[in-house]
Simulated assay, not measured.
Amino acid sequence: MPLFILNISFAAVFTLLTGSGRIGIFLFGFVLGYGILWLSSPLYKDTRYFKKLPKTLNLITYFLKELFVSNLRVLWDVITPGHISRPGIIGVPLDAETDLEIFLVANLISLTPGSLSVDLSEDKKTLFVHIMFLENATAARTDIKNGLEKRVLEVMRS
């Protein structure tokens, strides 16, 4: 059984045993299960679970922060009389190689308000992104490469 499924099962059993259906109890059970599995990690051969889960949480945290900040920027642009948006389309060279990696990067960009993945080059090396607040194209490319794409690749390749 994969360790993630085992950890989810442990959290579900913990939640049932405590008699509570709250998400906080489930998350506590998940963290407790992760700790127990980590302590018993010498029993598991060739597992990437203990490296992949922290990187996945890092990606989720980064995405939620970006989502919150971009929501505020779009909200401010909508409620103020003078528009501050400077839309533009940039090409972002990708280090992502597989279709799944490209799919995740493109969709996480599109889920963030104020940015939209528009197209992918024929050779799958460049992703074209529409950005609502484009101040500096080079800085925007760097933010995508060193922020979202880097974290997606860490999760997918670990």
Score class of each variant (00 low, 15 high):
Arg22Thr: 09
Phe63Thr: 14
Asn107Ala: 05
Lys52Thr: 00
Leu120Pro: 13
Leu148Pro: 01
Lys125Trp: 08
Leu75His: 09
Ala139Glu: 15
Ser121Trp: 00
Lys51Cys: 08
Ala106Leu: 08
Leu100Trp: 14
Arg86Ile: 07
Phe103Trp: 10
Leu57Gln: 13
Leu120Met: 13
Leu94Thr: 02
Ile79Lys: 00
Leu67Ala: 02
Gly24Gln: 09
Ile5His: 01
Leu27Tyr: 03
Thr80Gly: 00
Arg86Leu: 12
Ala106His: 02
Leu37Lys: 04
Leu32Arg: 01
Ile89Lys: 12
Tyr34Asp: 10
Asp99Arg: 01
Lys51Ala: 14
Gly29Ser: 05
Val129His: 00
Ile36Ala: 13
Met1Asp: 01
Leu32Ser: 07
Tyr49Arg: 11
Arg48Asp: 07
Ser70Ala: 13
Asn146Glu: 15
Val92Phe: 02
Thr98Val: 08
Asp143Met: 09
Pro2Leu: 00
Lys65Phe: 11
Val13Ala: 09
Asp143Trp: 06
Gly35Phe: 10
Arg48Met: 10
Leu67Asp: 03
Phe63Met: 13
Ile89Gln: 12
Gly82Pro: 11
Ala137Thr: 05
Thr18Asn: 14
Lys145Asn: 04
Val105Ala: 07
Leu104Gly: 05
Asn146Ile: 11
Phe103Leu: 15
Val13Asp: 07
Ser158Asp: 08
Thr56Trp: 07
Glu154Lys: 12
